[in-house]
């Protein structure tokens, strides 16, 4: 009984998560070929051990060298990192005051405020990104509004620029930033702030000396929760970004679907994962530390 309970989800995950991942790794070491499937070597198990040895000898790091040769790729990685980092920063800038306001709101409002933050998360991601196309386009609502109040005299191009990508990421990932920060701020013992004031702080000083350092775990968690998915984002750069917006998710997609270069796409994926390992480990550490502090 217990074995079966472990075995079923285990085997499922092995087959549909680990094995596919191994295949990606394998293909990333293969060569591009004009065939179906479009790569070589193919593992032919009918030739037995010898076939495997031959197959093994044909795997190489060529695609990875290719990635370093062509500056498109490392520029795409750098640009993804930059876009993800900046968007995370903007999300923090927008999210912290919201979380702070929620934590200070009267207790009976808070469930409703929580619901209002979570609600967009349940509605389609695609629709939320789509909503910004109509706002940011040249004839869009933002330009209409800015023209109407006389702040600009001609429409400015926002859609299909990196700025639109920042806005899109900030908008769609906002709940991921607000919720962990709210969780730490809500737990914050109000008497700590009173103690700070009692010991001579003004309210603003108490905010910097107590609230900010104590909300750090939530801020870090929120930043990682935005940064990690933003790094591999595909939908937002392809709908809101311009043709020159380089994000690795988009590059991978195009490499795969447009160029049909599966080995290079796989190599791009492997490197993206390697880059992601660092923030993921840092994130885990932060969570671990928070759990320990909680006990």
């Amino acid at each position: 009984m217990r074995r079966l309970l472990i075995a079923i989800p285990y085997i499922w995950l092995l087959l549909l998560f680990l094995v596919p991942f191994g295949i990606v790794l394998k293909i990333s070491l293969s060569d591009y070929a004009l065939s179906i499937p479009p790569y070589t070597p193919q593992l032919d198990l009918s030739t037995g051990w010898q076939g495997f040895a031959e197959f093994w000898s044909q795997l190489d790091m060529e695609n990875y060298w290719f990635l370093t040769d062509d500056d498109l790729y490392w520029k795409a990685y750098l640009s993804s990192l930059q876009i993800a980092a900046l968007s995370t920063f903007f999300t923090l800038l927008v999210g912290f005051p919201i979380a702070y306001g929620m934590a200070n709101a009267p207790e009976h409002w808070r469930p409703t405020l929580m619901l209002l933050i979570i609600l967009p998360f349940w509605t389609s991601f695609l629709i939320r990104v789509y909503a910004w196309i109509g706002i940011l386009s040249n004839e869009g609502f933002l330009n209409q509004f800015l023209l109407a109040i006389g702040l600009i005299s001609a429409p400015i191009k926002i859609l299909n620029t990196d700025i639109a990508v920042y806005i899109g990421i900030t908008y769609t990932y906002l709940p991921f930033m607000v919720l962990p920060i709210y969780a730490t701020l809500e737990k914050l013992d109000g008497s700590l702030l009173e103690a700070a004031e009692d010991l001579g702080c003004t309210r603003l000083q108490a905010f910097w000396a107590v609230t900010v350092p104590l909300s750090k775990p939530g801020v870090i968690a929120g930043c990682f929760l935005v940064f990690i998915p933003a790094l591999g984002e595909f939908v937002i750069p392809s709908l809101l970004g311009g043709s020159d917006t380089l994000m690795i998710g988009k590059v991978l997609w195009e490499e795969f679907f447009s160029n049909r270069d599966w080995p290079v796409a796989s190599a791009v994926a492997i490197i993206l994962l390697l880059i992601l390992v660092i923030p993921i480990i840092l994130f885990q550490r932060n969570e671990q530390k928070q759990r320990e502090a909680g006990n």
Binding site: D189, S191, L192, E194, A196, L199, A209
Partner: peptide
């Protein structure tokens, strides 16, 4: 005037 809080309100950080 200073106060010693019931929860002590020691700054955990």
């Amino acid at each position: 005037v200073n106060m010693m809080f019931q929860s002590y309100a020691l700054f955990p950080h």
